[in-house]
Nucleic acid binder design. Structure first.
Lengths: 232, 232
DNA sequence: TTGATTAAGTTACACGCTGTAACGAAATCA
DNA sequence: TGATTTCGTTACAGCGTGTAACTTAATCAA
């Protein structure tokens, strides 16, 4: 929201030639795509630090002022590009609490393995400097993911897998933070099983006091206990 | 380790005038302190982005080349300064598992409220670019803290408060990550009770299968249940 | 005292990136 | 035809970086 300098949607409302059209030469829509593709490529190659609007302009075959007509600056371009590359990717509704949560976290795992992972550390620095940018990031990246994860938790509560008195915001942080933590500091790898391991731990933390009738999949179901052991 | 350009310790081994002394004009030790003080002040005022070696030199009344003789660059100066300002601050050994873990996390809470919190987002960006710097950061900031938290967990295992088959590295991430997550993205505040809330959740996650004899303080002891409720 | 050695301060420089301005050419609408 | 807006190009000032060159200062060894 308000990420681009001027919203293209304000010109033609629906698809096709809208009834009202702004005067003047229209923007070349293909430039947006070429710029975003160049941004993703440069992020994957050298990370956020190696990305300069000068390099993006050259890679996309575009003049630098053209970029500034569409985005306020480098972090805005990156946020806008990453949001579109990540998609919505909400947690699924499978009827199994654990599976829903793991599916939500797995989209993070996948994103962190690509351009998003290379971009995040540098982007965090700019988020801390520009509050408006941080808000846009939270609305466009966090909000939908957290909402769908919260819905999965609520289904778990209704199902009896999760206590009713949990602090949802804190539990959401406990679920996602370890993945962000590892991608930002690189002290430990994010593996295929990491999301599942985190969910297993958190589900134990929020399980009801008295063990409920195990209606769906209790924490740790489907995976042998021995696999998680042995590092003390 | 290898954070400074040349280690001052290599000149005089013990306190006082050592037996061997490097030739030439000795370094002015007070300059190190003045530079670090200027660095902390500038970090608190404007964060990592507003900190330039030019500004540090001016604030400390020192020439810029003098800084480059002692530190390899801005991130090295910041890491070195933050490490000394944070101290060791290990988790205490009180005999109470929960209290030990909370005390360890509370040092993070305190640090994040000051210069460390202002510096961390920008520093993360440089850590991702310079692997040697990231390793130095992990060794000097993470290692001691994680070691003392791991010791607290081990005491909890021996005490019967914690299962013996936990993945220690993952549990350590689960404990610290929410605090880093909040300070880096700013989506939720870090309050006085946050560390305790996180520990309470994690202790539930790692509690033994069969409720053990409550020898010391079980998860949630000492705080009324109602306080944590009501946000679903 | 003399010479060697190293730090400190000052000044200066090239480099890269930023964000904007100015210009002419092109595309669209009224 | 005229108004409007985009696009590409070129140019510019500003800022911080990292290093070099030079002079002065401080210390040790002979």
């Amino acid at each position: 929201m308000a990420m681009e300098r001027r919203n293209t949607k304000a010109r033609g409302a629906a698809a096709g030639p809208g009834p009202r059209r702004a005067p003047g030469r229209p923007r070349d829509e293909r430039i947006d795509e070429e710029v975003r593709a160049a941004t993703l490529a440069l992020l994957r190659e050298g990370g956020y630090g190696a990305l300069s609007l000068e390099a993006v302009a050259e890679r996309a075959g575009v003049g630098r002022p053209t970029l500034y007509r569409r985005w306020a600056g480098k972090p805005q371009l990156v946020v806008d590009t990453l949001v579109r590359s990540m998609g919505e990717a909400p947690a699924a509704d499978t009827g199994d609490t654990r599976e829903d949560l793991v599916s939500g976290l797995s989209t993070l795992t996948a994103a962190f393995a690509g351009a998003v992972g290379r971009a995040l550390p540098g982007l965090v620095a700019d988020l801390a400097v520009e509050p408006a940018l941080a808000q846009a990031f939270r609305e466009r990246v966090f909000a939908t993911r957290r909402a769908s994860m919260a819905a999965a938790l609520a289904r778990g509560v209704a199902r009896g897998d999760i206590r009713g008195d949990i602090d949802v915001e804190l539990v959401l942080d406990l679920l996602a933070a370890p993945l962000y933590y590892r991608v930002l500091f690189g002290h430990a790898p994010i593996q295929g099983r990491t999301a599942g391991d985190v969910v297993d731990l958190v589900l134990r933390a929020v399980a009801p006091e008295t063990a409920p009738a195990q209606r769906t999949a209790p924490p740790g179901a489907g995976r042998p206990r021995g696999k998680r052991a042995g590092r003390v």
